[in-house]
């Protein structure tokens, strides 16, 4: 005896929500960087072999393999090496689009950090633009890059392309 054929459409979706919580540890080198941010300072690490300054200090210099962790304080201003204008909305976005995300080579560092530039029209963003950090008020400072709200234009003349060409 066989069952009559099932005329219903196949099951195509099964909701199985998963929630997993993680307690992430920053580790030794990142902690140094984060603690400095709580003091309005940007502290990187210099590699003892290639002498490049990394932000943050690193457990292994990517080109030498040894810890790049001799502490070096760098400036809170620098040069935009490249950027993009984000026009797509997504859940974790810090602002409604459009907004400008930039790579900034801080004065004294050898590799750019990523942050946002505010206070300019998106179309006015450009490579070579000089920018400085806008810090949060003292009572909001903490061990996070969010201690810097965003970067703003300094009004200095743009750096020449050659100054950033090797950081792209």
């Amino acid at each position: 005896m066989s069952a009559p054929p099932d005329e219903r459409p196949p099951v195509t979706v099964l909701q199985a929500p998963v929630r997993l919580d993680y307690t992430v540890t920053a580790g030794h080198h990142l902690s140094t960087y984060l603690r400095a941010l709580a003091d309005r300072k940007i502290v990187g690490g210099r590699c003892p072999e290639c002498h490049k300054v990394y932000l943050p200090a690193r457990g292994a210099c990517p080109t030498c393999g040894v810890p790049a962790d001799a502490p070096v304080e760098v400036a809170d201003q620098g040069t935009v090496t490249t950027f993009c204008v984000i026009r797509i909305p997504f859940d974790a976005a810090p602002f409604p689009p459009p907004y400008v995300a930039v790579a900034i080579l801080l004065d004294g560092a050898d590799m750019p950090i990523f942050h946002l530039v505010r206070g300019i029209e998106p179309d006015a963003a450009r490579m070579g633009m000089r920018v400085r950090a806008v810090w949060v008020p003292d009572d909001q400072l903490g061990p996070t890059l969010a201690s810097i709200r965003w970067f703003e234009a300094t009004g200095e003349p743009d750096a020449p392309f050659e100054a950033i060409a090797s950081h792209l």
């Binding site: 920053a26 993009c84 797509i88 976005a93 995300a101 061990p143």
Partner: peptide
Amino acid sequence: IPFQPQLTAGAGG
């Protein structure tokens, strides 16, 4: 990811 603000959006960013 803790310790850093969300800046970009997916691979395109």
